[in-house]
């Protein structure tokens, strides 16, 4: 689960105050709001990439407010995907496992498991240069899911893909959710994405978050 209580984040003149919401375990939450309202800032604070002035963040029943990003056990896919420039796709997926000192056999097995889930077996030997938006997004999802995180944070995962690929991505995100049961927080502008995927929809308005149950 994700539990955010009375969060205060300050970045220069930009301040977010009293941000609270809760997403139960294994559910899919979509956070919506206008550009510049602070959705990404909240997501980054949850990931441990922005300092929290006040309030608390709990992930999987553990208070992580003061924990470093590396100790939060999350999978994060940023808006710009940010694949590691010099690594092959298989090394990107294996990165979190190398850090955790998994054995080579286990790493190889997990890479192939994820590659199959994401449909990217044919990309494993390639470097990120030249991948399409959809392919890069799948690789970033594989990289984020490799160490079986408690929480998956997706920042506009469909922002850089065309309409044809979007339907594939919907199906992929549904498959990931079904197979991994990972609690997911997804940021988007699109009400279509929210309606299609969300168990809970969080709407960021005037610095407050309002929660709606999904109609689907």
């Amino acid at each position: 689960m994700i539990s955010v209580k009375n969060l205060k984040i300050q970045q220069g003149n930009f301040v977010l105050e009293n941000v609270s919401f809760e997403l139960p375990a294994q559910q899919y939450g979509v956070l919506m709001g206008r550009s510049g309202c602070g959705k990404t800032t909240v997501l980054e604070a949850i990931c441990g990439l922005r300092p929290i002035r006040e309030g608390s963040v709990k992930l999987a029943n553990r208070d992580v407010t003061r924990l470093k990003a590396s100790n939060r056990n999350i999978g994060y896919v940023p808006q710009d995907i940010a694949l590691f420039q010099t690594m092959k796709v298989k090394d990107q997926i294996g990165f979190a496992l190398i850090i955790r000192k998994w054995s080579k056999t286990e790493i190889k097995k997990r890479i192939h498991e994820l590659a199959e889930l994401l449909g990217i077996e044919y990309l494993l030997e390639r470097k990120p240069q030249g991948l399409s938006g959809g392919e890069a997004q799948r690789v970033a999802l594989g990289r984020a899911l490799a160490a079986s995180p408690h929480i998956l944070c997706l920042d506009e995962p469909m922002g850089a893909i065309d309409d044809d690929t979007r339907e594939d991505m919907f199906k992929l995100l549904e498959r990931i959710r079904e197979q991994t049961k990972v609690t997911t927080l997804h940021i988007t502008h699109s009400s279509l994405e929210a309606e299609r995927l969300a168990d809970k929809i969080f709407i960021f308005q005037n610095g407050k978050i309002r929660c709606e149950e999904s109609k689907t």
Binding site: C47, G48, L49, K68, A69, S70, N71, R72, N73, I74, G75, Y76, P78, D80, A82, L83, F84, Q85, F95, A96, I99, R100, R143, A144, A146, A147
Partner: peptide, 22 residues
């Protein structure tokens, strides 16, 4: 070099030093 790559490495469990070297 986009700093975001190092931030992603941190969320994947890497220390500051590992995100620099790797």
């Amino acid at each position: 070099i986009d700093q975001r790559q190092e931030q992603v490495a941190l969320t994947l469990g890497a220390s500051r030093s590992q995100s620099f070297w790797l």
